[in-house]
């Protein structure tokens, strides 16, 4: 294994993993802190950040072709339709 390969194969993913672990510690700690605001939002934001790390780096969406990115994006956009229109009903009853 060349040093270049070692960097690309081992260290880069390891850094992402470390980031994930830190975020996990952060979110668990925040949930137990007394008297802090907007717990659900923070926990979901951290989950989204972890998801973004996995998608962009582990799944290499950052370097993927345009159509692959499009396919990834479409799922999220369409799921938002589901939430948007269902809650348009729930919230206005």
């Amino acid at each position: 294994m060349t040093p270049e390969q070692r960097r690309h194969l081992i260290y880069a993913p390891l850094r992402i993993w470390l980031g994930l672990c830190i975020l996990l510690g952060l979110t668990a700690t925040y949930a137990y802190l007394p008297h802090v605001p907007i717990k659900p939002i923070i926990s979901l934001l951290i989950a989204a950040a972890k998801g973004a790390l996995i998608v962009l780096f582990f799944m290499q969406l950052r370097k993927a072709e345009a159509i692959v990115r499009l396919a990834a994006l479409v799922g999220v956009i369409w799921a938002s339709f589901l939430f948007l229109f269902s809650f348009a009903d729930f919230l206005t009853r």
Partner: peptide
């Protein structure tokens, strides 16, 4: 390109699949 594109399309499917049950969660929690 075909394999990542095909798999990502399938993952979009999964996103909506779990999206359905997350909608149940969102409704029930709200």
């Amino acid at each position: 390109v075909a394999v990542p594109f095909g798999v990502w399309s399938f993952l979009a499917t999964e996103c909506l699949f779990f999206g359905g049950i997350f909608l149940f969660y969102a409704y029930a929690r709200w």
